[in-house]
């Protein structure tokens, strides 16, 4: 039981720190942390599939975009209220994950990477092809008046922060719970040894499909949340770059840990933000840090913590 409560305390502690952060941080950083929490939700989505199930997707941007466009188009063309649009976004992401899962899960390993990559590329081109509705690469804006959540203004610093916080908290805690359930443990078993899991009588295919659907839906949730809080929907978020970024965040933060995604996003954001204050060639610094980090912190930041300080880290 101590193991369990320690982890629980850590998760609640992190959430408490995020609440305190709102009151102590300067305005700019409050905005930055709002964005970090949204992107961390995206990273949590990928972490479930990659970190826990061992399936490396290089196409998660399509799920993020499905949520983003599901939400944005519902508001733009159906004038849907925010909550309904959000539900539609989740349905869109879940449906896409289901279809992609049924096809892509026929493959494994590197073939799975490539299939997801190419499906995502297809999705990106579809967004451009239907430019009449999506405005292609340029994207479109959701007006402030269209972004009222049950009459609550999410475009103020406070509103944005706490909406981001609430969704993050639900995903973060839900995810921490999920990986403790038998379902989560079976996913880890599949990651560790798929053959063995199959021999033990688990329907490996079904678990993988479920993991992909949950993962894709969480990513879509992040996409919808981004559109809601920042008022912009654009094809950039469907591009390959936004499939690679969450992978980088998860690997940096620590794949297969509950706190890794948040740490990874925060680390990468502030690495670029801080180094760009000193030099224009901040990408050079970011590149060097990535190389050094992978050389000296093999399992990501949370992986180091687990190794050195907190062996109980979930």
């Amino acid at each position: 039981m101590t193991r369990f409560s320690k982890a629980d305390a850590l998760h609640l502690g992190i959430l408490a720190m995020l609440v305190i952060a709102f009151f102590v941080l300067p305005t700019y950083h409050v905005g930055a942390v709002s964005r970090i929490m949204v992107l961390a939700v995206y990273a949590i989505g990928l972490n479930l599939l990659f970190g826990y199930t061992g399936l490396l997707s290089l196409g998660h941007a399509m799920f993020f975009a499905a949520g983003m466009y599901g939400f944005g188009l519902a508001i733009k063309f159906m004038a849907a209220p925010v909550l309904l649009a959000f539900v539609l976004a989740l349905i869109a992401a879940a449906a896409l994950s289901l279809v992609v899962g049924l096809l892509a899960l026929r493959t494994a390993g590197v073939a799975f990477m490539i299939v997801t990559l190419m499906f995502a590329q297809t999705a990106y081109l579809v967004v451009l092809y239907f430019g009449e509705f999506t405005r292609g690469d340029e994207g479109f804006v959701l007006q402030q008046a269209e972004r009222l959540l049950l009459g609550f203004d999410v475009t103020s610093e406070t509103g944005r922060y706490f909406v981001a916080f609430s969704v993050f908290a639900i995903c973060f805690l839900g995810f921490a719970r999920l990986v403790q359930t038998p379902f989560g443990k079976r996913l880890i078993a599949i990651r560790e040894n798929e053959e063995r899991a199959r021999m033990l009588g688990y329907d490996v295919g079904r678990y993988k499909l479920l993991a992909l659907i949950v993962s894709g839906t969480i990513s879509g949730c992040a996409g919808a949340l981004y559109a809601l809080l920042f008022g912009y929907v654009g094809a950039t978020f469907a591009s390959v770059q936004y499939s690679i970024l969450p992978l980088l965040w998860v690997l940096l933060g620590g794949a297969g840990t509950t706190i890794g995604p948040l740490i990874g996003v925060m680390f990468m954001f502030y690495l670029i933000d801080a180094s760009s204050a000193y030099t224009n060639s901040y990408m050079l610094i970011a590149g060097l840090v990535l190389v050094l980090l992978t050389m000296f912190a093999p399992k990501g930041i949370a992986g180091i913590l687990r190794l050195r300080v907190m062996p109980w880290l979930p």
Partner: peptide, 14 residues
């Protein structure tokens, strides 16, 4: 670039 303008403008308004 238009996509940068459109992505940034909502924040400018807020």
């Amino acid at each position: 670039f238009s996509h940068v303008v459109i992505g940034s403008a909502p924040r400018a308004g807020e």
